[in-house]
């Protein structure tokens, strides 16, 4: 249904009059020009945080400074980021979850839809593409400790494999089982458990001891990758499932 982008009332894709558009264009052009001039004339101050991060890199447990900032120096950001993802996933989850069903169906997460016929070229491509995406995801997770990469990049690539499967239409995903829900919240749960264990050891919530920092970051990253992949896939599959019957209704 989103192929139809104009609004029903006006039939136009712009909600303003020509004069208002012109004035808005002038204002925004002026604003952008002012910002560009500000960027050109500003002299960049000495990067105080950069040198702080670099000096403390050997206490962080990883060699990649971005991963060190994400999961050690500013790990609150990452904890809350995973919480934000989980909240959105709960919002987008299909309604059947809350329809008063006390017993959840014991279906597998990924089930094959035998009735759906797929182009053999597409099926052959998927056979290569999906394992390759999983492999690349694992590599990105591992390399995150030394070079650009990490949990979110890995999760996005693995979710991409699931999106490809979903678009081909040969597989159905089930989001109603308990194990899937545990998978969705695994990242946040493990993060909180690690923080709690750390609190028992050191007395501070997210300041890891130097000797355990690498291990803690690895555990969190693996759990976060699984959750991020599952949540991104859920967002795509569920939004597609809501949009599809509506679009079919439009064409009738």
């Amino acid at each position: 249904m989103f192929l139809k982008l104009e609004t029903r009332e006006t039939g136009s894709d712009v909600g303003l009059s020509t004069l208002a558009c012109f004035l808005l264009g002038v204002v925004i052009t002026t604003l952008s020009a002012a910002l560009i001039i500000a960027v050109i004339v500003s002299d960049k101050a000495a990067p105080e945080l950069a040198s702080l991060a670099m000096q403390n890199l050997n206490t962080s447990g990883v060699e990649n400074p971005v991963t060190a900032v994400l999961l050690n120096f500013r790990s609150y950001d990452t904890l809350l980021e995973i919480a934000v993802l989980l909240i959105v996933a709960v919002a987008v989850l299909p309604d059947q979850c809350f329809a008063g069903k006390t017993s959840l169906p014991a279906k597998r997460f990924l089930s094959r839809n035998v009735k759906h016929q797929v182009n053999p070229v597409l099926a052959g491509l998927l056979k290569w593409l999906v394992p390759l995406a999983l492999l690349v995801g694992g590599y990105l997770l591992w390399i995150g400790a030394y070079a650009p990469g990490g949990a979110f990049q890995a999760g996005a690539v693995i979710a991409g494999a699931g999106v490809a499967l979903s678009l081909a239409g040969q597989h159905d995903f089930t989001w109603q089982t308990t194990s899937v829900r545990i998978t969705l919240s695994l990242g946040l749960l493990v993060f909180i458990v690690v923080a709690a264990i750390n609190n028992l050891i050191t007395g501070t919530t997210l300041q890891y001891p130097v000797s355990y920092a690498g291990l803690f970051i690895l555990i969190i990253e693996v759990a976060a990758t699984i959750s991020i992949a599952a949540i991104l896939l859920l967002l795509f599959v569920c939004l597609k499932a809501i949009a599809e019957p509506a679009r079919e209704g439009d064409t009738q």
């Binding site: 945080l49 971005v66 994400l70 500013r74 980021e81 979110f152 991020i228």
Partner: peptide, 14 residues
Amino acid sequence: TDPVPHAMVLTGIV
């Protein structure tokens, strides 16, 4: 290269 804005952008993308 300052890693702090990079981490902020990564969080921002998510």
